[in-house]
Design a protein around this nucleic acid. Structure first.
Lengths: 220, 220, 220, 220
DNA sequence: AATGAATGAGAATTCATTCAT
DNA sequence: CATGAATGAATTCTCATTCAT
């Protein structure tokens, strides 16, 4: 159900990058590594290509030989992350989690654990991602819809399943999706970008899951 | 329980700024206005002082005559916002909302409406604020604790009241605070910064309040 | 024997200043005072008029009302100093020192003491003077000849007197003048400008006088 | 008796500069050449990097690529000069001059000729040097002691030798050193900085040597 | 493929000077 | 006389990008 986005510059560029990104030299890997770290720390526009080159132990020209522009280097960082964050997650992870007759709480718990680990493993790229998305209109305007298109139907399907099993309240799916998306989003952003926390234990995940399921109101 | 913060460079600087900013020239006001708008749109470091000057109809030197540095101009924008976001909110708003024997849901509804309107009125500054906080370690390290100190005890008091009235579940206050803070935060950030939405109707507030109180799990 | 210098911009300007400089207001005096101190410390071109105004407790405009330009403020500082350094010194001091049948050594001693005290009293202006003379070709080209014209004949007369009394060797007067000028000059510059010494005791003056008279060679 | 100066920021910076400046591009050399000339003529702070770039036929950025800051360019000019003015002079020149049983007058003559030629060859750098030393407290405070430490013991040794040979009067060495230093200093500064003279003939050196040895008093 | 010297278009900031009040 | 807001040209410095080797 992925909409065609042929009019998107950014996604076109990303598609190009994917094709080229087969075999990276050692120097390219080092450049990416350093760039991710610096972009995450100081932001894209506060990081000089000269600094990347120096820390990566390559000449400045080398970066431009490989990536053409600084902007392109940024995209080359974001593309593989995006690829892994959604498409693979979507169809592999969701099926994996849904196979057994797992309870809704258990599903949430496993889902949050899985994504938390992925984001912790890629915390720097995630930071780069969010930071740039907030700044750059173009990026925001193209990626937010893309992400929604990727995530929305899968999330919808899951909610539908659990509504039918009687574990989720009978409100319109879109409404539940919004609430869930906002909660997940607030949770990840505040932990991994704003507070820069490096850990997340199971207990905390239990709390958030309990909250999502039961709210904080006391049942009469 | 509010910690003294006399050792804060940034907050000291802010205090100085407030004093100076009483009697503003027409040109100064115009500069601030334009700066807020540009910083919100493109971010602080992607906005040139030359552009601010041009749009404000002043010479570039005028900006520096009044604010000394570009950084200082940013602080001059953020300070009054911060001052109004917390201290005033805290002691006036909270009392106002709590006087009558308001229900928990009603409290949440009113609180969210009030803060939503404030943020809609100051959406651009809020964006500047969040964007810079994400980038600048110094800002983050001083403001996050400050905000927590301002908000935490007040939030705690409210939860305590409603727990005693039997409207909020008997979990540790700190746990409920975390969950609420994350939800509010995710809600505001995703709406006003990431999605850049300009409206919020009462129905949506009802949804989020219902979610906070009841969760999305179905009661058996 | 003072040559006419009608073609000199600088000396003309100075002449104008002299005429205007009759009655100074309290603010003017404060401006001059602060300017001298700052020019001496950091040099003319490293001192901002804004700083002078601030330390003098006046508005920036006030400086320009009185002195027109920053350059003119500098000249207004140098003129009275120059006036006292040479013309008055020349005809009053020299006569005073030469009246009695003073010995050459005694003359040198008194002369050095007198000029040393004058320079110590005006050390800051002297520093301004030398520093600017070194930098500004125009100043150098006009003032060095002027100073030579003022000092040279008077020094020549003194040497002549002591040669006739048999206390100074019979070398060409110009040669002795050069040597003396260089020595005096080196002495004052190194002490009061480069090393920034604030004191000079009689013993040191005795040494330099002894050296000028006898050299450091041992007599057989 | 040479003090360790490991705590000197400026001198450390200079050491770094030397290492980098081994293999200079043609453009770098041109930049240095032009900078020396302009700094000497108008002083460091009255020379714009734009002007240096223009006269050197390079882009302004090139200057900053190589030297980082304008200040650093200044140091890059001064360092090699300083290195040659003292250390090499000291141990090579002094020994060379002292080997034969040269007379004191002859020593002075040769010494002055040698240093005069060095300063004439480097007149512009010498001017840069003196001009900046007068202005910048930091430079003065680090270099004046350094120069004294370099020059003082060597000068002392020479005086000692000639005192023992009976050619120099038996006054305390420190006193003779002061007098000599002041004379040399006044001589070089007044000629090469203030008067900007381009020549020095043997006759003039003979005069100054004669003066140093015999003074200007007539022997009875 | 890799280098790194060179570029030049901005960027922030400074400052003497003007002028309306 | 005095003020101080406003100016705008000049200055130092940054940085993505190019290109000859």
């Amino acid at each position: 159900m992925v909409t065609e986005m042929g009019n998107s510059n950014l996604l076109n560029k990303m598609a190009e990058i994917i094709q080229k990104s087969d075999n990276q030299t050692a120097k390219q890997k080092k450049i990416m590594e350093v760039a991710i770290s610096l972009f995450a720390e100081k932001g894209y526009s506060n990081t000089a290509t000269a600094e990347i080159a120096k820390l990566a132990g390559v000449a400045e020209g080398t970066i431009f030989k490989h990536y053409g522009t600084k902007e392109n280097l940024l995209l080359s960082i974001m593309v593989p992350f995006l690829k892994e964050l959604f498409p693979s997650m979507a169809d592999e992870l969701f099926e994996e989690l849904m196979t057994d007759n797992i309870s809704f709480e258990e599903f949430l718990r496993k889902f949050l654990k899985n994504r938390t680990h992925f984001l912790l493993d890629n915390q720097e790229i995630f930071q780069v991602f969010i930071k740039e998305m907030i700044y750059k209109e173009e990026l925001k305007n193209e990626l937010v819809p893309y992400i929604f298109e990727q995530a929305s139907p899968r999330l919808g399907k899951v909610i539908d399943v659990f509504q039918k099993r009687g574990e989720v309240i009978d409100l319109p799916i879109s409404q539940i999706k919004n609430v869930l998306a906002t909660t997940f989003f607030g949770f990840f952003i505040s932990r991994f970008v704003l507070l820069n926390l490096q850990l997340l234990n199971d207990e905390e995940i239990d709390h958030i899951v309990h909250f999502i399921v039961n709210g904080i109101g006391k049942r009469s």
